[in-house]
């Protein structure tokens, strides 16, 4: 299941990353090395094994539905790279 150059570029797009040409080669090789190692998992028969997503069985952690003060708008914007009139500013989308 070796990754091609094109697949690496596609994955980069999905991950919102862009790669330099020399990085495409490097990442293709390194990701293939790692994936080849991960192939090891196919040695095991897991047909009847329930996948484990979490270490501790905690289900439906409910809390009381109480009104509490939220984060003040100005504070929430404190770390924003760009802000204006109480909003986050991003490049034009439309």
């Amino acid at each position: 299941m070796a990754l091609t150059r094109e697949e690496v570029l596609h994955v980069a797009t999905l991950a919102r990353l862009s790669l330099e040409p020399d990085e495409v080669e490097l990442f293709t090789r390194q990701l293939n090395d790692i994936l080849a190692y991960v192939e090891k998992l196919q040695e095991l028969d897991t047909a009847d094994v329930t996948p484990m997503a979490h270490a501790v069985p905690v289900f439906n952690a409910f809390r009381e539905d109480k009104v509490k003060p939220g984060l003040p708008r100005e504070e929430a914007l404190d770390n924003a790279p760009a802000r204006e009139e109480g909003s986050f500013v991003v490049p034009r989308v439309i």
Binding site: R16, L17, S18, N79, A80, P81, A82, F88, V90, P91, R92, V93
Partner: peptide
């Protein structure tokens, strides 16, 4: 690059993210 941290400008939103 929207709510916190450092932003690198791009021509549109997608380019800014990447």
């Amino acid at each position: 690059g929207v709510k916190y941290g450092v932003r690198q400008e791009g021509r549109n939103l997608l380019e800014m993210y990447a």
